[in-house]
Design a binder for these strands. Structure first.
Length: 933
RNA sequence: CGGAAGAUAGCUCAAAGGGCCAGAGCACUCGGUUGAUAACCGAGAGGUUGCAGGUUCGAUGCCUGCUCUUCCGACCA
């Protein structure tokens, strides 16, 4: 028996079933580099409508983690898809290079060596460190298949960038929106330096706990009598509690909770105020009786009453604060605006002085009576003694709690108000304009608007100064003679022009004269000598200025950007700072749309952390499965929410990838002898099933394009996956393969199928290219016909309407339903071993009504549709139809006749000719045509 | 403690001005095939839509409370 297999048009392709992504991906990335794919796309789209995604700069520290993968891949999806939608969509990646974490890392690496280094030298070490991680991360991002201008990214430490940050600040200075004020920060008196939140460690500590009496001032008595008549004739005082006696000299207020109930108790003939819920406890502690309640009232009644300081002839204002609790103390909180965060905000709200009479070493200065020159910790007992002497100290005990300590020297730290630079939120209507800009921006998802709105509406003035080394210096100076700080446009411009050439290091290295504008004099004392301040800018100002530093200066960019895309934490971070800088420099938001994504969680939905040991390293996944799997994963999950990753998710993603790859492989493998130019069949001459496939494809393609426009990536996967698995794999390809394999290679029927398959696989390669960038690039190069050097230079499929055919699809969904019914019957017969494969079956089918007509219309096609050897359509007989619910009667039996050795169908008779022995007539005809090679 | 978001089959996603037995794909089980073969086809099983109430003829979808998770922020005087 001859081996007829060789005469069949079996699929052939070098697009292998196994993806080999581990080798394919690096090769592809290298090829893209070599051919300058990014540049070629730019050239190809030149003149098209622009679509600009402005990259939020990741921090140049450490290797990339799974969150970076989500973020950068989403950006890549946006950029690639917009290029294929026909936009000119450039992408310039950036890095955030300044800031504390790098400083700390470098500090640790340098160890004791750091002490011998100048600030400029230390900054050079930081720069080298940042550059190292820029390079590492760049390699990793490229490995993910992200396309962009990797050769010329923007770095916040670029000299020109540093200069542009300063110029952006200049816009604020010019409008008089920047002022110097005070703000409490963590301060280490041992290291004599401000500490960032990350440098503070909480450790157990024993503090003195004291209860102190503040008498009501006489002038407030009438007001109190009005609010609380019962107290009209009393001598009134309030009892406060604190664990930092040394802040008593700085006391300027007493805070009450507006809604708590307070009571005035007769204690030894005086009316003493404490929170009612705490009266009993306070009584026990102080050993006095709080049994006799004279009056009770809300904390609100205490607002703006004036109390007297227990040590000095000074007032202490009654204020309200929500942060007052009943967990400890008296419900009346000692408030020193210069020495606490709450105290500070309350102080600002009530117009109290931000008073902190300490030197950097934590000593009281000369103005502080009784305690001048004392270090705060040494002052504690003295202050207690002074209070006791005056009869104001009601109780004292030790108090164990967790207290902030300096992470370096492990001494307790204090809160200390220090001079800082601020941007005033309400100068030049900054806040109002920002709120309007938020309203004018499209937030995706929409709740982002309310979120950032709340933040902008409530935020305090922006503190932009940091007492740090690695960043952009605030080009402010102090008058040597009188200490008056200066920050003006001329100073800023001068610094910016120096930074342009020498970088911001110049501030620490070059002579001060280079920075002092000609003829500058101190506005206060007329002094002409100045010294530089050593504050640097908040790094959020750095990155928030990126639109100013990048968009106007890059050829293919424009201001504002079309879209920003970051994690939802950036409502507080980069979106926020970018918005404020944008308002300050140009009066509007630097973006039209803001798209946010969630965070990557582990497979249980918990956040990843080193301590939990549930982190998933993208580097490992790439090694095991390939970056395409990560890209596919990003595309199929709902990134607007938090997303999960874990073994099963990734395994499912790999399965999905295989399925997609395999179906595309079958399609291209049937095109090995097809040239679209010569072999395409016009739609009019195509078989109906091929037109059906194209109609399905066109519907899907249209929805996918729409989904790209809507940033609905999971929707793309849904549609594409359904088309590929259900419509193509399980239906179209399955039904069509007999024709493709056994018909004459050049027969119109086979060419018809090839035409459809070509259009579909070509279209899918385009449609999936943003997601499976490497795989589609590979497929693209193997497809027949003239085409761009890379699929990423191509456009999404167009003119899809020509393939659409709603009535055909409707007819065919009825046919598919019949096929489902037949399959059920076939399955029954397979179970009882009447038949095995579908080709060993014959089907007898009858129906009534519409279905009957459909069956007779498609009589010739039914055996193909069902994949069986023979179908007999019977005219409907009411009796036979009784058993079936939907007017369909199906009978399956074993096919009769002889099996054709070539196409495996059972036919009534096969050829007896020696050359064609065992073949059905259709195969004999097919072989009349020479086999193509 | 405050602001915001979410919770649908083992996994990833669908279903909404509230209404046919809540749908796919993958995974799983069984069967077929061996001319997509580390593939392919068919069939099957799998969900009281986080929990508890409420509104309604009827709720996954609306309201209230709770639980859990996540992001942001505040706080420990």
């Amino acid at each position: 028996m001859a081996d007829w297999k060789d005469t069949c048009n079996l699929p052939r392709t070098s697009f292998s079933m196994k993806a080999n992504l581990q080798t394919m991906e690096p090769e592809t990335v290298a090829r893209w580099d070599e051919m300058d794919l990014y540049g070629q796309i730019r050239a190809a789209r030149k003149g098209a409508k622009k679509f600009l995604l402005h990259d939020g700069p990741p921090y140049a520290n450490g290797e990339i983690h799974i969150g970076h993968v989500l973020n950068k891949t989403l950006k890549d999806l946006v950029v690639k898809s917009h290029n294929m939608l026909g936009f000119d969509a450039p992408y310039i990646p950036g890095w955030d290079c300044h800031g504390l974490p790098i400083e700390l890392k470098v500090d640790r690496e340098l160890g004791p060596k750091k002490r011998q280094m100048s600030t400029a030298e230390f900054r050079r070490a930081c720069r080298a460190y940042a550059q190292k991680y820029v390079d590492i991360q760049r390699t990793e991002f490229k490995r993910l298949g992200i396309l962009g201008l990797w050769g010329d990214p923007y770095l916040t430490m670029d000299f020109t960038y540093q200069a542009r940050i300063v110029r952006a600040l200049g816009k604020f200075v010019e409008k008089d929106m920047v002022y110097k004020g005070k703000k409490p920060v963590h301060w280490c008196t041992h290291c004599r330096t401000a500490l960032a939140e990350a440098e503070v460690e909480y450790e157990p500590h024993t503090s003195p706990s004291i209860y102190v009496e503040f008498p009501l001032s006489d002038e407030s008595l009438p007001e109190l009598a009005k609010r609380v008549p019962e107290l009209a004739a009393c001598k009134v005082s309030v009892l406060i509690w604190t664990t930092t006696p040394w802040t008593i000299p700085s006391n300027l207020g007493i805070a009450f909770h507006p809604d708590f109930q307070y009571g005035a108790y007769d204690v030894g003939g005086h009316a003493v105020i404490v929170a009612k819920d705490l009266a009993e406890t306070v009584g026990k502690k102080t050993g006095r009786s709080f049994d006799k309640l004279i009056a009770s009232f809300d904390g609100k009644a205490m607002e703006r009453l004036v109390f007297r300081h227990p040590l000095y002839p000074r007032d202490s204002l009654g204020v309200l604060g929500d942060y007052v609790t009943l967990e400890a103390g008296t419900g009346a909180v000692h408030t020193a605006p210069g020495h606490g965060a709450d105290d500070y905000h309350t102080g600002v709200r009530y117009g109290l002085e931000i008073y902190a009479p300490l030197d950097p070493g934590g000593h009281f200065n000369e103005s502080v009576e009784l305690f001048a020159g004392l270090k705060v910790y040494d002052a504690n007992p003295k202050i207690e003694a002074a209070l006791k002497e005056r009869g104001r100290l009601w109780h004292r005990e030790d108090y164990d709690h967790s207290y902030p300590h300096c992470w370096r020297c492990h001494n307790p730290v204090i809160f200390l108000a220090t001079a800082q630079w601020f941007i005033a939120m309400d100068a030049h209507h900054l806040r109002d304009k920002a709120l309007k800009a938020i309203h004018d921006t499209r937030w995706i998802p929409s709740w982002g608007q309310a979120r950032i709105e709340g933040m902008i509406a409530n935020r305090p003035d922006w503190c932009i100064s940091r007492q740090r080394s690695w960043g952009v210096p605030i080009p402010a100076m102090d008058c040597v003679k009188c200490g008056q700080p200066v920050l003006n446009k001329a100073l800023v411009d001068k610094a910016a022009s120096v930074f342009d050439v020498h970088g911001a290091d110049a501030w620490y290295e070059r002579p001060v004269e280079e920075f002092v504008p000609d003829g500058m004099t101190c506005a206060q004392c007329g002094g002409t000598e100045f010294e530089r301040e050593s504050n640097i800018l908040d790094v959020w100002f750095d990155s928030g200025s990126s639109h100013e530093a990048v968009l106007p200066f890059r050829d293919d960019h424009h201001w504002p950007a079309d879209i920003y895309l970051e994690g939802s934490d950036q409502h507080r971070g980069w979106f926020h700072s970018s918005l404020l800088v944008g308002i300050g420099t140009r009066g509007r938001a630097p973006f039209d749309q803001v798209l946010t994504h969630g965070f990557v969680m582990d497979d249980q939905g918990r956040k990843m952390s080193k301590s939990l040991g549930n982190t998933v390293a993208p580097q490992d996944i790439i090694k095991q499965s390939g970056a395409e799997i990560l890209r596919l994963w990003v595309s199929m999950v709902d990134y607007r929410e938090d997303i999960r990753v874990g073994k099963e998710v990734l395994a499912r993603t790999v399965e999905a990838y295989r399925k997609i790859r395999n179906v595309l492989r079958v399609l291209i493998a049937n095109l090995y002898d097809f040239d679209p130019k010569d072999d395409s069949v016009s739609r009019a001459k195509m078989l109906e099933i091929d037109r059906w496939a194209l109609a399905k494809y066109a519907d899907a393609a249209e929805r996918i394009v729409k989904a790209y426009e809507d940033y609905d990536y999971p929707g793309i996967f849904q549609v594409a996956n359904h088309l590929i698995t259900v419509d193509l794999s399980a239906f179209y390809i399955d039904v069509t393969k007999d024709r493709m394999y056994t018909f004459g290679a050049k027969s119109e029927a086979r060419r018809s199928g090839q035409t459809a398959m070509f259009i579909i696989v070509d279209g899918l390669a385009r449609l999936l290219a943003p997601i499976l960038s490497v795989t589609m690039d590979e497929l693209w190069r193997m497809l027949p016909g003239e085409r761009e050097a890379s699929v990423h230079m191509a456009l999404f499929p167009r003119e899809l309407d020509q393939w659409k055919d709603a009535s055909l699809l409707e007819r065919w969904s009825a046919l598919a339903a019949i096929r489902d019914q037949v399959n059920l019957k076939i399955e029954e017969k397979r179970k009882d071993k009447t038949i095995a494969g579908n080709l060993s079956a014959r089907v007898t089918i009858a129906a009534d009504g519409e279905t009957s007509k459909l069956l007779s219309d498609y009589r010739e096609f039914l055996s193909t549709l069902f994949g069986v050897s023979d179908v007999t359509v019977k005219s409907s007989s009411p009796q036979a139809l009784k058993s079936s619910a939907d007017g369909l009667n199906v009978e399956v039996s074993k096919a009769g006749g002889t099996k054709c050795d070539r196409c495996w169908r059972y036919v009534p008779e096969v050829s007896q000719e020696p050359e064609r022995a065992g073949l059905c007539s259709r195969c004999v005809d097919a072989l009349a045509e020479p086999v193509s090679l």
